[in-house]
Amino acid sequence: MIAEGDDDPTLAGNLAGMKPSVLSAYSQMGMLMAGIGVVLGIAMGFDLVTREKESKSLKSLLAYPVFRDEVINGKALGGVGAIALAMGAVLVVSVAIMALFGIVPNLDELVRILVFGVTSFLLVFTFFALALLMSTVSKDSGSALLYSLIVMIVLSSFVPIFAYTPVYSAVFGDAPTPPGMSTYSYQQSSSAYTVTSVAVAYKSDDAVDPEALAEYERASREYMNQKRTITDIVTLVSPTGNYQTILGAVSQPAGDNDPGLGNLLGALACNIIALLAMPAAFFGLAWVRFMREDIR
């Protein structure tokens, strides 16, 4: 039936030519994963060390001929293995459900699904490493959970707020106004939780000075470049932001204008490196803290 649209120039014909992509399902799944995966990572790591401290079993564990680095590395490896198993099983379940519906991904889509799985694993691992760090720093599991949640909220919600236009404008100023135009802005409450900032521009009757127009273009370009740089930095600091950037790019179905997965991953190198560096940094800090810890 889909092939019928090939020689139909109408919109319906164009729609008929489009193949429904399995990747849009993973895009939806990724949005949910960004919330639940974070909780999974924290839940698996927040009491790894504090539980041993509370039950006084850490002292007896270290009385055996084992080094401290083996203990922390072993705990991290066990957790990573369990996370990898869970993510792998979820991917298999999702592909199986699609196969049940008669949608079989092609090779390109399979590779993209795999990239989705690896990226989701890295997101969960980031928050697992964060919880492990908080577990080594804290005296009890409750504090470790609380600190993990605070850092998680800061990284996932507070930091990305700076990329939103109203907050950005409040901190770094408004965008330049076009010459011959005047703007005023007001805040409109669209629901109990969201406030929309509305800028209204109106044209004045004065003639536009070409120099002022050139100045406006230069200032506008500078403003946009600065905004893009700050948004990119903010996204790099937030693991959830990196995850959503990679997910958004990878889950676009391959079309005629598609740059190819290799080029796409090359363009996302900064986000991928940031997503790898953050868990490495958290685990490194947890490792150093555990090695120097005074256990009584």
Partner: peptide
Amino acid sequence: LFAILAVVAAVGMIT
């Protein structure tokens, strides 16, 4: 958590 993840995956696919 694994059960929730599996349900999320299934709901995403079915939706």
